[in-house]
Design a protein around this nucleic acid. Structure first.
Lengths: 206, 206
DNA sequence: CGCATACTTGAACGGTGTTCACAAGGCTGC
DNA sequence: GCAGCCTTGTGAACACCGTTCAAGTATGCG
């Protein structure tokens, strides 16, 4: 005996937003594995079936949450202007903001990568543009180190730095570097950035 | 009406091995999500309950599989001696072997990182020593670049390079760098290694 | 041979994501 | 004002999941 508290068409987008918000809260506080169709519907005081009127499946909701996570990351990085005195300083500041965001939003950040990557035959992956926007920020910072016409090398460096940052975050979150007490994530990031930039400068001179 | 084809005590270890082998096959060919208690038991012609006489839970089997994966990776890296003509060449060879292994064993490699990392209160994570052994290989290669007493800096560099390699592999597997056709994973690794080493050498001179 | 023990067994439990026949509300046209 | 359509919420049901455990059976021992 359904009750059907009817919502108007305009409300549907609002309801979807509530879904994404609530899913974000659940993931943020308890991790992706706590996100459950029944749990989510219950928190929103809605029947399970409703979810599937609005989204194709739970993954679609996670993708939407990941989108807002990436937006939050972009906002955290762009909050203040990056220091302009040197490329190194800008990259380190950028990285520190990244690490800070990751630490504040462990579970959300983890959810970004727990989604199965696009299979061998890759259908476009929805948040790709947002990732590219973040690459672009790094490329922008790197520009002074490259001559016009070296865009390919600049793109490579940006991706290498981004990948390094990603790897360091993973290691840090997984406590994989704690046992030796060898260094904080920030130390590693500084090593990453400084060596890379110094290497680029050295190449330039030779 | 149980059938109980009785196995001898000595056979238990052999059966565990068969479990890990079969689980490895399933993960390798169909991914971690295809590994199911019933599927695994079925493939081994055994009842579901038997699994839990041998292992505490499925994760324990995955950890065992991950152990053999890491052993395989170590073996792939140590298969031939690394080129001795330069640190760069050695690191690039090492990285290429890593990338080759990852590509050959996508799903197994992914399973390494799909396991939830140790929570905030970290109980020791079983394959830690194997990871550290791989760090040690990188550190060994890096040794000529550092003076005695700079072990901490060497450890940092090793971790930075390892993290970079990890990040590049992730990006490559997730097709995150394909859309621009910007570079192969091998290109990025070369950039990573060469810039880092050049940066270290530049620091040394100054 | 009989017995105790150790082990396998598979039904059962409480969960999961997803589907779908159905009912209830809003909207349109008369 | 009201009939009917159509959109959309509903929740029982399905097939699966990891895990448990009472019951039954083969083995090793006395």
């Amino acid at each position: 005996m359904p009750k059907a508290t009817r919502t108007r068409i305009d409300d549907r987008e609002a309801l979807k937003k509530r879904y994404v918000e609530e899913a974000g809260k659940i993931i943020a506080t308890e991790g992706l594995s706590a996100l459950t169709a029944r749990r989510l519907a219950g928190n929103l005081a809605v029947a399970v079936g409703t979810t599937y009127n609005l989204f194709a499946n739970l993954d679609e909701i996670v993708v939407a949450v990941n989108g807002t996570t990436l937006d939050g990351l972009a906002a955290a990085i762009a909050a203040k202007p990056l220091p302009a005195e040197s490329v190194e300083a800008a990259l380190i500041a950028l990285s520190d903001r990244y690490l800070g965001f990751v630490r504040k939003n462990r579970n959300l950040w983890q959810a970004l990568f727990e989604m199965a990557p696009p299979g061998e035959g890759n259908e476009a992956f929805p948040n790709q543009p947002r990732f590219e926007a973040l690459f672009a920020v790094v490329e922008g910072v790197l520009t002074p180190l490259f001559l016009p016409g070296e865009e390919a090398a600049r793109a490579r460096s940006a991706r290498v730095l981004w990948a390094g940052l990603h790897g360091i975050s993973m290691l840090a979150l997984g406590q994989r570097l704690a046992p030796l007490g060898v260094a904080t994530a920030e130390d590693l990031v500084e090593t990453l950035v400084c060596c890379h930039v110094a290497g680029l400068r050295a190449d330039r001179k030779s």
